[in-house]
Design a protein around this nucleic acid. Structure first.
Lengths: 153, 153
DNA sequence: GCGGTTTGGTTGAGCGTTCAACAACGCCGG
DNA sequence: CCGGCGTTGTTGAACGCTCAACCAAACCGC
């Protein structure tokens, strides 16, 4: 046979379903808050954050996609919207004529600065406030383990 | 002032970003696998699972929405697609003339039965295989805490 | 019973994401 | 220098989700 399915035992099932419910609820809540308060989805917020942290607030599209966890296509579509909103602008890359460089505009930075406190407060309220310091530490190790595992396959 | 923002310290930021990256990567991976192998997104899979576990494989739309973590609107749209695929059918509720009852068809059950082993294997490979038994236990407690916290606000 | 409110479910528009296809450019061996 | 291959980024179609609006039926107080 090709291989027996390694089914989940009841404990694992409970873990998986709770994790699913929790992360989905958390993301939906934060996404909704961000949409309501800042008029943008969480994915766009993260793009602006990464840009704001880059030297000169500028990044190659491919690096921005990588660091914000977007596919190239997704970023391309998002960039079109962010540019239309006046929050970023795209410049040509001097060293690679295929390249595009996304630049955070002043308006984009201002929008981000206005959105950040509310969002951070949301993350704290919905995530950190619920967990003990020990649990926060556990969650960090678990997440780092998973990231390492998922990117190496 | 309205209130100082309780910013995240470096440790919390690292935790938050790792969690974000990990859960996003995990969901995207499982969603892609399910789409590739079973031709449906994860949300639809979960709807079919809940139906399959219900008595008589039938549930009121509102209960199905609740248990599968969908909004009513989402479930309504999804049900239309699932019905078009022949995986569920909708019947009228005898005790409440507003109500609809979603029923898993034999074809839907067969599709689910075919998809389940691959999906479960994916959950195991991408999640449980990466973590120690202690970490799995920690993750369960953390997730349950979060679920409780998120649903009570 | 009768109006007002709540609940159950659907609908359509608008938006964001995916996927596959594509164009333009850089890179590298011969 | 040239031809093939990998890379960068964009595009359009299909799809799923959200949000607000809506209808119909149930519920509730009087």
């Amino acid at each position: 046979m090709v291989g027996m399915t390694r089914w989940l035992n009841p404990d694992e099932q409970q873990t998986w379903r709770s994790f699913l419910t929790a992360s989905r609820a958390l993301m939906e809540t934060l996404d909704r808050e961000l949409q309501r308060d800042a008029g943008m989805p969480h994915a766009y917020y993260e793009i602006l954050v990464r840009l704001s942290e880059a030297p000169q607030r500028r990044l190659r599209m491919s690096e921005l996609a990588e660091s914000s966890g977007s596919s190239r296509s997704r970023l391309s579509h998002a960039a079109a919207r962010l540019e239309a909103a006046g929050w970023i602008r795209r410049e040509e890359c001097p060293t690679d004529r295929r390249g595009q460089i996304a630049v955070l505009t002043d308006a984009g930075f201002a929008t981000l600065a206005a959105a950040a406190p509310g969002h951070v407060e949301g993350v704290r309220r919905h995530l950190f406030d619920a967990l003990s310091p020990a649990q926060v530490d556990q969650l960090r190790r678990i997440s780092e383990t998973l990231v390492a595992h998922l990117t190496r396959s």
